[in-house]
């Protein structure tokens, strides 16, 4: 049962197309498994669409109701220029008789330590780096090219875990398969877990798990001897 969901502001930014690809993909993966969020996204999209496309109507019909600080300034010159441009766009577009074909992407699968997983469809067209292994952890980087935001598939073998750590930035985990626990409780397939820099946790996976992770800074190990593990922090990031 999915217990952890993206918060409303994140869904909103997702619908607006304002999130980076890494986080948008995370929400798509979650929503494919979560009818609740899927429904919210549908509703939000409807609302935003309605508001986007009614703006014109408001500006013309409700001009009287707007006070003088209104930042509508409809320039007639602009409109005339657009008219010529728009007419040429229309003839360019309708000149082609082509109809778009929809090609459904074929699902990719990935193997970590003898276990093969079918990946969510949204990952079908994304390249992956070579898998790197440290102990019970394996990771493969997604080639999204988003500067300081790094996105990985992280596999924890049965009985493995990540030592207590915190972040300077954020750490997002979407559980693709299996489960893990930390002091807050158990996380299961489909859970969307967003943590920020103030949070310290020690996830352990009894039976192993596969996660989609997004972070914008290396993990920082916090406890005594574990500080020696800080290179692993960069490994996971």
């Amino acid at each position: 049962m999915i217990k952890h969901h993206p918060k409303f502001e994140l869904l909103e930014a997702f619908v607006n197309g304002d999130l980076p690809a890494s986080l948008s993909i995370a929400i798509t993966i979650h929503a494919d498994m979560c009818p609740l969020c899927q429904q919210k996204i549908l509703q939000l999209t409807e609302q935003v669409a309605e508001q986007s496309f009614e703006e014109d109507v408001i500006s013309l019909d409700n001009l009287d109701n707007l006070d003088s600080s209104s930042h509508f300034d409809i320039s007639i010159d602009d409109d005339l220029e657009s008219d010529a441009l728009f007419d040429s766009m229309i003839s360019n577009i309708t000149f082609s008789e082509d109809v778009a074909e929809v090609v459904k992407p074929t699902d990719k699968s990935v193997t970590f330590k003898d276990k093969t997983y079918v990946l969510p469809t949204v990952l079908s067209n994304i390249g992956f780096g070579k898998t790197a292994n440290v102990g019970k952890l394996s990771r493969s980087r997604l080639q999204l090219n988003e500067d300081e935001i790094h996105t990985n598939l992280l596999h924890i073998n049965a009985g493995g875990g990540v030592p207590a750590h915190t972040h300077k930035g954020f750490e997002l985990t979407v559980l693709l398969d299996g489960s893990f626990t930390d002091h807050e409780g158990e996380y299961n397939k489909g859970d969307f877990i967003m943590l920020d820099g103030t949070f310290t946790h020690t996830p352990v996976s009894e039976n192993g798990c596969l996660c989609y992770t997004v972070a914008n800074d290396a993990l920082h190990f916090t406890q005594g001897i574990n500080k020696l593990l800080n290179p692993i922090g960069s490994f996971i990031y």
Partner: peptide, 21 residues
Amino acid sequence: MVAIQTNLPTHVSHAKSSSMT
């Protein structure tokens, strides 16, 4: 909230959708 991100002027964002729809 939605209105801000879609650049709907804040003046009208509180107007309810029923009439505008």
